[in-house]
């Protein structure tokens, strides 16, 4: 419940924009590189205005070359700059995977701590935009699997700004996943400087009957479900890890201990994903406090289909969370 009483409401996209602008003003080493990020301000127009303030030398429009710009980011980071690499869609991170996994993640370790890669990779996740299988994936779990990378997945404008600023100042490579459906989401963001430390979860709603762990936009699915559940007397606690790697395991376990039930909701595919990791942490840490199996909701294990009739079946919805929560609470 760390959202302060701010009068000002801005969108998620504006929050991201502000975070980058503030850090670029603060630190001349920070620059951005990515496809269509300058005048176009990205496909989602999130970075509009940055090129006017910082010029084309620091807001670099790149060729369509994901592996290249990520590799360039690694090299620049190692030698005194603080790049933010923009990968337009999370799906395209696959093209940059070698640079991220084999290079960025390992250089600090392999060099015995001699070199470091203070780089941020900014990309998206999330379906339901009718963009089909190659523009709708949530691949954050891939990166969470790799030691040496940090991964954040903010759910509100406030968190997006505070976490991104911390990520830019971090000395390790950090990948931030923003849900492309949330750029227009509005929320309170105070004027002026603040950061949110990586690795600290946030309780978005306090409850006592069941813990709903949501990541990124699934936090809003969880909150929506919590609202419906409250009407039938089930008080759900909504926990947002905010940082997926490193995870704030303590907050997750403590909430589950308190409520004795948990559902983990994430938009990545269910198999081998973020939900599995968090569920296992809860099952392990809160085992003797659980009154029901820890449940998971994630994207169906199918490529995201184009047709709205099918796509909507593949991602978790508040109704699914409500049904599952009722079952766990013995209310069916």
């Amino acid at each position: 419940m760390s959202t302060p009483n701010a009068v000002r409401e801005i969108t998620f996209g504006q929050a991201v924009n502000e975070a980058i602008a503030e850090e670029m003003r603060r630190d001349p080493r920070v620059f951005m590189i990515g496809e269509d990020i300058a005048e176009a301000g990205t496909t989602f127009k999130v970075l509009k205005g940055l090129v006017e303030e910082f010029g084309k030398e620091r807001i670099i429009d790149s060729p369509i070359a994901e592996a290249g710009i990520t590799g360039i980011g690694v090299g620049a980071a190692m030698t005194g700059m603080r790049p933010i690499v923009d990968i337009m869609f999370g799906d395209f991170i696959t093209l940059a995977m070698d640079q991220l996994v084999n290079q960025a993640a390992k250089i600090h370790y392999m060099s015995g701590g001699k070199w470091s890669v203070p780089m941020v990779v900014r990309t998206t996740l999330g379906a339901t935009r009718r963009s089909a299988a190659q523009h709708s994936q949530s691949l954050h779990a891939w990166l969470c699997h790799i030691p040496g990378l940090k991964v954040i997945a903010p759910s509100t404008p406030y968190d997006a700004k505070g976490l991104l600023k911390s990520a830019i100042r971090d000395n390790s490579p950090v990948v931030t996943f923003e849900d492309k459906m949330m750029f227009q989401l509005k929320g309170p963001v105070p004027e002026g400087e603040y950061t949110i430390p990586l690795g600290v979860a946030d309780i978005k709603r306090v409850g006592k009957d069941i813990t709903l762990v949501g990541t990124s936009s699934m936090v809003h699915v969880a909150l929506e479900a919590a609202k419906i559940l409250a009407e039938i007397g089930i008080e759900a606690e909504v926990v947002d890890p905010r940082t997926l790697k490193p995870l704030d395991t303590e907050t997750l376990i403590n909430s589950a201990k308190k409520t004795s039930r948990a559902i983990v909701i994430d938009e990545g595919h269910l198999s081998y994903g973020v939900t599995a990791e968090i569920a296992s942490i809860i099952a392990d840490g809160a085992f003797y406090y659980l009154d029901a199996p820890v449940k998971r909701l994630g994207a169906m294990d199918v490529p995201i289909p184009f047709s709205p009739a099918l796509e909507d079946l593949t991602v978790p919805t508040p109704a699914q969370v409500v049904e599952m929560a009722k079952t766990l609470c013995g209310r069916v």
Partner: peptide, 19 residues
């Protein structure tokens, strides 16, 4: 039909415009 995500489309609505 494919562009509208309909079943008789070339990819049964799973691919859409780009696939």
């Amino acid at each position: 039909a494919e562009l509208l995500g309909k079943h008789p489309g070339y990819c049964h609505g799973k691919g859409g415009s780009m696939h």
